[in-house]
Design a binder for these strands. Structure first.
Length: 567
RNA sequence: UGGGGCGUGGCCAAGUGGUUAAGGCGCUGGUUUUUGGUAUCGGUAUUCGGAGGUUCGAAUCCUCCCGCCCCAGCCA
């Protein structure tokens, strides 16, 4: 992360207190653990999104606060869904968010041999068995939510037979689905996870890390807790839907010769309004071409946010102030995230001038060919950011929205006969609006007051109600500006059917007419820049000095537009 | 007629028997301002899902009721 990104925004948010931190504190105080070790365990089957950021901030956050450590562990037990490209993308995103796992990078697959041995251990102790039931039969034997299940006919196979079968499973003698090994727990348990859960299945599939070494793979339930134990994880933090799995997690820890006894705690996952946050839905958007990729700036993925220009610090601050609770069905409003994005950007973004919808202005009393280089501050929130020069000339462009023909009293911008300040320039009065045949205003004739040069006020003491931005016609460069609106046009996409039916068709607008202050050609990708009065932008990876491309990260708060909307 | 959770303002969320029921977002007024931005000041729950009960005192303890979420993958 950059120096600027390490700013003080986070320290401004008080150290949070939540039930997880309380548990950790009390475990430490009581000496139940020697130190804190957490882990962030993504499955490499998609990109990380803002929901993962919450978990990342919790796991790495508490580790840092309590002087412990946090491991990055890939939960790669299902080769049919997992890919190396996701492993790389996840590592990049975790680093970008600002977390460092040091030497503690692990893969569940590193433990396949040990997990196999533990499955054998269970088989030897009569606590597991090889079953021949197929998936459909197993479902039928499992019972329902209200009715207990029945024992499989193979539940009481001999230890010898089980061991032989399991060895042959490993050796590849059986096809996918032909055999499965199950923990022998209780088919009548109210908790369905305890009705003899599958712990090993046959998957003739190449694994991203172990290749073809295995054709049987442990399930999540059989891998997660044991992997936690191997790594010495003390507090295994996960989301609420795993609450029902905790008895199973504990069962394996209790019934296997693991060296440590980690504990699982659950917190509520993040839901955000106006977007979807499940890998399945996000992958569908990518696969169906509804977005340009996982890093499309409209995506709630970390890579999407990064490309969009959201500072990592804003995401961290956002996560931090949310808190960690067990309230299951909470949906955080997108406006909450927006606030932290603007807050971070306001402090760090360089200010530049750019006109998105240009309207020509000719300053008739300005000498032809004269260029005055005016002082402009780079960031009013940060004196250290310095100043730059911007060229003021006879022919300028302003924003179309900054001119109105029949302007109401409350309109503080330009209109025929009205005077405004051109930021860092002069007071300018509009004398005439030139129209084309269709009656559309195509140019403004104006005059300026030489006694109002930026930094000075007119001797007669008159004031101006508005200040607008502008660019010099001869100096400006052209560029594409991509404007984003929410990907979905309702806060709860999919609430009444297919979430794709709620896609906002106008979520991306590409503006090719924008005129930019010349220095913008040299913007570096991702660098935060405010286009004065318009919003925060950053150069897209597609950007080049000859063909500038900017993304609008987020607009400025706009109370004028809001008042307009209300009528 | 199963098991596991959760219910505090529009949203998130403190609160752990005695507080005028924190705080943030949003919304809404004012002030400042060469960004209608920022900053700043004020307003925004007589009440904690509901009903009873215990207590001098309850969002906090007890009882019953109501509502919402998760679980029947050889996904994680």
């Amino acid at each position: 992360m950059s120096e600027a990104d390490k700013g003080s925004t986070e320290s401004a948010v008080e150290a949070p207190r939540d039930f997880i931190r309380e548990i950790i504190q009390s475990d430490l105080d009581a000496g139940r653990v020697d130190g804190l070790v957490t882990r962030f365990p993504p499955e490499p089957n998609g990109y990380l999104h803002i929901g993962h950021a919450k978990s990342l901030c919790l796991n790495f956050g508490v580790a840092e606060e309590f002087g412990g450590r946090c491991h990055l562990r890939f939960d790669d037990t299902n080769p049919v869904k997992e890919e190396t490209l996701y492993i790389d993308a996840i590592k990049k995103d975790v680093s970008w968010l600002g977390f460092d796992w040091g030497d503690h990078l692990y893969f569940a697959s590193d433990n396949f041999e040990q997990l196999y041995a533990w499955a054998v251990d269970l088989l030897e102790n009569g606590k597991a068995y090889v079953d021949d039931l197929n998936a459909e039969e197993m479902r039928e034997y499992r019972g329902t939510l209200t009715k207990p299940g029945r024992n499989s006919p193979h539940r009481d196979r001999s230890v010898e037979e089980n061991l032989d079968l399991f060895a042959r499973m490993r050796a590849g003698e059986f096809a996918n689905g032909e055999k499965v090994v199950r923990a022998k727990i209780d088919m009548a348990a109210g908790n369905i996870n305890l009705r003899d859960p599958a712990i090993y299945r046959i998957l003739h599939e190449t694994h991203p890390r172990t290749g073809d070494a295995w054709c049987i793979y442990p399930t999540y339930d059989f891998a997660h807790g044991q992997t936690d134990a191997i790594e010495g994880i003390t507090h295994s933090l996960c989301t609420l839907e795993f609450e029902d799995h905790r008895p199973l997690y504990d069962w394996f820890v209790a019934n296997l010769p693991v060296k440590t006894a980690p504990h699982q705690y659950e917190f509520s996952r993040l839901s955000l309004s106006h977007t979807v946050l499940s890998k399945r839905n996000l992958k569908q958007l990518v696969d169906d071409g509804k977005v340009s990729g996982w890093d499309d700036p409209r995506m709630p993925t970390l890579s999407g946010f990064r490309r969009r220009g959201y500072p990592a610090s804003a995401i961290r601050t956002f996560a931090r102030q949310l808190g960690f609770t067990k309230s299951g069905d909470s949906v955080v409003e997108m406006a909450n995230l927006d606030f932290f994005v603007r807050e971070a950007l306001n402090k760090t973004a360089l200010r530049r001038m750019a006109v998105l919808n240009p309207l020509k202005v000719t300053i008739e009393n300005w000498p032809e060919g004269q260029v005055d280089w005016m002082d402009a501050v780079n960031n009013p929130e940060d004196e250290g950011a310095g100043k730059r020069k911007v060229p003021f000339t006879r022919e300028l462009y302003i924003e179309r929205d900054d001119f109105m023909e029949d302007a109401p009293k409350k309109f503080f911008r330009l209109s025929v006969g009205r005077e405004v300040r051109f930021k860092y320039g002069f007071f300018v009065t509009c004398t005439e609006a030139i129209k084309d045949d269709k009656g559309e205003v195509i140019e403004l004739k104006c005059t300026y007051d030489p006694e109002t040069r930026s930094g000075t006020n007119p001797p007669d003491g008159r004031k101006v109600k508005g200040t607008i931005h502008w660019v010099s016609a001869v100096h400006a460069i052209k560029g594409d500006v991509r404007l984003y609106d929410p990907l979905f046009n309702r806060p709860d996409p999919g609430a009444d059917g297919d979430f794709q039916d709620d896609i906002n068709p106008d979520s991306l607008t590409i503006n090719t007419a924008a005129l930019l202050e010349p220095s913008l050609a040299d913007a570096s990708v991702g660098e935060a820049i405010q286009f004065e009065r318009l919003g925060y932008f950053c150069a897209d990876p597609d950007h080049s000095p000859n063909a500038p491309v900017f993304n609008r990260t987020i607009g400025l708060r706009d109370s004028w537009a809001k008042a307009q909307k209300k009528g």
